[in-house]
């Protein structure tokens, strides 16, 4: 059963635009994780993991998930994303304000 049902078809397109559009595949340089990355600016980063990627990351797997380190990203993945950005593999910039 769906909840918070949108009443406009355009809303579904907005959901796609904001969640899955313009994600670039970035592979971690140190493990088998591959994530979707979007960068609207130098300081902005959006990282979409999959279950497979999450299981492949030894850094995150070491955490028990209940502590206060939950919000910290994997430093190896961050370095991999920075490297992909330097190599011009990830576009930086927002479309229409996002």
């Amino acid at each position: 059963m769906a909840s918070f049902v949108p009443t406009s078809a355009d809303t579904l397109e907005d959901q796609r635009l904001y969640t899955s559009a313009r994600l670039t595949d970035v592979a971690c340089l140190d493990c088998l994780a591959r994530v979707g990355v979007k960068k609207n600016s130098d300081h902005h980063t959006s990282i979409q993991w999959s279950r497979e990627a999450r299981e492949a990351c030894p850094e995150l797997s070491r955490r028990d998930g209940r502590g206060r380190d939950h919000h910290q990203g994997c430093p190896r993945l961050s370095a991999s994303i920075e490297s992909a950005v330097r190599e011009g593999k990830v576009d930086i910039g927002a479309e229409d304000g996002y």
């Binding site: 059963m1 769906a2 909840s3 918070f4 959901q15 969640t19 609207n40 600016s41 130098d42 300081h43 902005h44 980063t45 959006s46 990282i47 979409q48 993991w49 999959s50 279950r51 999450r54 995150l60 990203g73």
Partner: peptide, 28 residues
């Protein structure tokens, strides 16, 4: 909201993207 949706659907209908890890750094 996609994450929050998981609590409003049957357990069997929870989609991977509702629970998959997602990270976002806002440019302030």
């Amino acid at each position: 909201r996609r994450w929050y949706e998981q609590f409003y659907v049957d357990r069997a209908d929870v989609q991977p993207e509702m629970v998959d890890r997602f990270e976002f750094e806002v440019d302030t």
